[in-house]
Computed example of a mutant assay.
Amino acid sequence: MKQPKIKIPKTLLETIFDAIGITFYLLAIIYLAMVFGGLPDRVPGHFNGAGEVDRWGSKMELIILPLVGGGLWLLFTVLEKYPHVYNYINLREDNLEAQYRNGRLMLNVLKNEIVLFFSMITYSMIQIAQGEAEGLGRIFLPVFLGIILVSLFVFMFRMVRM
């Protein structure tokens, strides 16, 4: 079944989430730009599952996370405009708009969670490079994965219930 295209205006909640995500993203970039010249040549390049630095690299590598985070944010923003191409469970004519809104909100939430985490990691990498911290901490990875998985579960649950 070819899913119909319908125009659904962006909600206030999606706009608020975007504003929060972009604000933290821009703050991370501004902070990186402000301290970049004073950073040591070696900065954390990778972390193990316990949040400990397991590879050091050039400070130029600090630019990678904001680029990837910004790229993912843009990609998800484009995908939000096409909810009719997503895969749905239980899609019917009477719940079409609600399913599209739910799918689009799911992408919006995931996109902003990802950009927030990338911003946090960028900030943490700078702190570690400056000797202000030792690692991300043991709970960073479980919390990150937990938030993403709980978000997915909530939206999938909502989709099935519609």
Rank of each mutant, 00 (worst) to 15 (best):
L74W: 13
Y25C: 11
L67E: 00
I16N: 08
S58Q: 11
G38T: 10
A28Q: 11
M60L: 13
G51A: 05
L32I: 10
T23I: 10
G57M: 10
F47R: 00
Y25F: 14
G69F: 04
L39F: 01
K81I: 02
A19C: 04
I64N: 09
L74T: 07
I29F: 12
M34G: 05
L67I: 10
F17N: 10
R55N: 14
G51C: 03
L39A: 04
M34H: 12
L72W: 03
K81A: 09
L65S: 13
G70V: 04
G57T: 15
D18E: 14
I22Q: 02
I22P: 00
L65M: 11
M60D: 12
D18V: 04
I63W: 02
T77P: 09
G49H: 11
D18C: 09
F17P: 03
R42Y: 14
L75Y: 13
V78F: 14
M34Y: 14
L65T: 12
A28F: 08
G38K: 11
I30D: 09
L75S: 11
T15M: 05
E52H: 13
F36Q: 02
T77W: 13
L75T: 07
F36G: 00
L62N: 08
L39R: 08
D41A: 14
V78Q: 05
Y25S: 08
R42I: 08
Y31C: 07
I63S: 01
V68E: 03
T15N: 08
F24I: 12
G69P: 00
H46A: 10
Y25G: 06
L13H: 10
V43Y: 07
G51L: 02
F47M: 05
L26N: 07
L27R: 09
R55T: 07
S58V: 06
R55V: 00
S58H: 08
G71W: 09
V43Q: 05
G38H: 11
S58N: 13
L39H: 01
H46D: 02
V78G: 01
L27D: 08
T77K: 11
E52V: 11
L32A: 02
I20W: 07
I29Q: 09
D18I: 04
V53R: 10
F36W: 08
G71D: 04
K81Y: 00
I22V: 15
L67W: 01
D54R: 01
L13D: 06
A28G: 10
A19G: 10
Y25D: 03
G37V: 00
G49C: 03
A33M: 13
G49W: 15
E61S: 15
K81N: 07
I63C: 05
I29N: 07
M60P: 01
M34F: 15
W56V: 09
R42M: 15
L26M: 14
R55A: 14
P40W: 13
K59T: 06
A50P: 04
G38F: 03
V68F: 06
G51Y: 04
S58T: 12
A50H: 11
L26E: 08
D54E: 03
F24Y: 12
L67M: 09
I22L: 15
T15S: 14
L32H: 01
V78T: 03
W73T: 13
G38L: 02
E61W: 15
F36L: 03
W73S: 12
